[in-house]
């Protein structure tokens, strides 16, 4: 069973990397991009278990380590 975890900066938290990338896209002539936000993607391989239990465990993992909820939001997707 695989789980995907997306960690992104909260709205209102400045993202200087996203801003720099946005500027570079503009330099490349790739227009139409209004904003860029950089985040993290983690793929976890889990032992076979119930989805509910897996979600509970992942929620705890995000809250306690994978994301810093002062500045970041997280989203969990469980596959299979």
């Amino acid at each position: 069973m695989k789980a995907k975890i997306f960690v992104t900066l909260k709205k209102g938290v400045l993202d200087p990397q996203g801003k720099a990338i946005h500027a570079s896209l503009t330099h490349l002539g790739i227009g139409g991009v209004e904003d860029v936000r950089v985040g993290k993607f983690m793929e976890l391989t889990l032992k076979e278990t119930g989805r509910d239990e897996a979600r509970m465990r992942l929620e705890e993992a995000c809250r306690r380590l994978l994301a810093n909820t002062v500045i970041e939001d997280y989203r969990i997707e469980i596959e299979g």
Partner: peptide, 17 residues
């Protein structure tokens, strides 16, 4: 200390990059 919750807030990348 911030990550451990002993102090409030968090650090992000310098504004200047």
């Amino acid at each position: 200390l911030l990550e451990a919750g002993l102090l409030p807030g968090a650090m992000i990348v310098n504004g200047s990059l």
